[in-house]
Simulated assay, not measured.
Amino acid sequence: MYEPIRTKSVHSTMAADVRVPHRSREEELDIQLAGHLAALLAVTDELGLDSAGDAIARQIARLRGGMPPVRHAGLRGGSASALHGRAHALAGRALVVAASRADTAAAILAAERMDAHALALAP
């Protein structure tokens, strides 16, 4: 009923034979965690929390193999409560990834930042 395919598939390419470097799950989680922490760092710097920002920057540098993050507080004039809410959400995301990666230091830092921002949001 069906005729067997006698030609080479059009979906295979020469590039398929070349080994493409792939990142491991741990490397992908490192990149994701560093990204969440970098976003948290930006909001933390905008809030003017220097010591907390320094601690976050150290964790980012550790995840990036010693390369420190670029820090620039692009002040947008957001309200403090909105910034604390955003920072709390970002710290929560970082905590989830840190827990998935089993990174105790980053998880503790993220949990501390969540507590600090939750306290700032409390009436």
Score class of each variant (00 low, 15 high):
residue 10 V to R: 10
residue 10 V to G: 09
residue 10 V to N: 13
residue 11 H to Q: 08
residue 11 H to R: 11
residue 11 H to I: 03
residue 11 H to W: 13
residue 12 S to Y: 14
residue 12 S to R: 11
residue 12 S to M: 06
residue 13 T to Y: 11
residue 13 T to P: 00
residue 14 M to K: 07
residue 14 M to N: 05
residue 14 M to Y: 12
residue 15 A to R: 08
residue 15 A to H: 06
residue 15 A to D: 11
residue 16 A to R: 06
residue 16 A to E: 15
residue 16 A to T: 08
residue 17 D to K: 10
residue 17 D to A: 13
residue 17 D to S: 11
residue 17 D to W: 11
residue 17 D to L: 13
residue 17 D to M: 09
residue 18 V to C: 04
residue 19 R to W: 03
residue 19 R to C: 01
residue 19 R to L: 08
residue 20 V to R: 10
residue 20 V to M: 06
residue 20 V to H: 13
residue 20 V to E: 10
residue 21 P to I: 08
residue 21 P to Y: 13
residue 22 H to V: 09
residue 22 H to L: 07
residue 22 H to K: 12
residue 22 H to N: 03
residue 23 R to A: 14
residue 23 R to H: 15
residue 23 R to D: 15
residue 23 R to S: 15
residue 23 R to E: 14
residue 23 R to I: 07
residue 24 S to Y: 08
residue 24 S to H: 12
residue 24 S to D: 11
residue 24 S to M: 07
residue 24 S to V: 05
residue 25 R to T: 12
residue 25 R to Y: 02
residue 26 E to S: 14
residue 26 E to I: 05
residue 26 E to A: 13
residue 27 E to T: 03
residue 27 E to Y: 00
residue 27 E to V: 01
residue 28 E to M: 15
residue 28 E to I: 11
residue 29 L to V: 04
residue 30 D to G: 08
residue 30 D to K: 14
residue 30 D to P: 01
residue 30 D to V: 01
residue 31 I to L: 11
residue 31 I to R: 14
residue 31 I to K: 08
residue 31 I to G: 05
residue 31 I to Y: 09
residue 31 I to Q: 14
residue 31 I to T: 15
residue 32 Q to R: 10
residue 32 Q to E: 15
residue 32 Q to T: 13
residue 33 L to T: 02
residue 33 L to H: 02
residue 34 A to Q: 10
residue 34 A to L: 03
residue 34 A to W: 05
residue 35 G to N: 10
residue 35 G to I: 03
residue 35 G to P: 09
residue 36 H to D: 15
residue 36 H to C: 05
residue 36 H to F: 06
residue 36 H to L: 00
residue 36 H to Y: 07
residue 37 L to P: 06
residue 38 A to P: 00
residue 38 A to N: 14
residue 38 A to K: 08
residue 38 A to M: 00
residue 38 A to R: 12
residue 39 A to M: 00
residue 39 A to I: 00
residue 40 L to D: 03
residue 40 L to V: 07
